[in-house]
């Protein structure tokens, strides 16, 4: 899981933005629209990042409907020190 977190949050082009999304979701679970607004990112970008994070088991949604709320998975919570190592250095 740690390798996945490094790859998805720090080893890829969209990594830093995904780390920001994850930090925001840790503060308070949100849906894609709220994330786009709060982080000043395009909705499409947020949608893509959420899909990548969900595919890799980093976050999960409450349901599959439109406007689903996302939050970090238990697996991510157990390795939160790794996430912090990455996220703490971001603006």
């Amino acid at each position: 899981m740690e390798a996945v977190l490094w790859q998805v949050l720090a080893g890829t082009r969209g990594g830093p933005n995904r780390a920001r999304l994850l930090r925001a979701l840790d503060e308070r679970p949100r849906n894609a629209n709220q994330l786009a607004e709060d982080l000043d990112l395009a909705y499409k970008t947020v949608r893509h990042h959420l899909d990548v994070l969900e595919e890799n088991g980093v976050i999960e949604s409450t349901d599959q409907n439109y406007g689903a709320i996302y939050l970090p998975t238990d697996r991510t919570r157990t390795h939160w020190d790794t996430v912090e190592e990455i996220v703490d250095q971001l603006e």
Binding site: A10, G11, T12, R13, G15, P16, Q89, L90
Partner: peptide, 18 residues
């Protein structure tokens, strides 16, 4: 370019290694 920029944002041995 990608990994260099990531290293500038996330200074860690992982990003530096790549």
């Amino acid at each position: 370019g990608i990994w260099g920029r990531n290293y500038l944002e996330i200074r860690s041995k992982h990003t530096l290694g790549s």
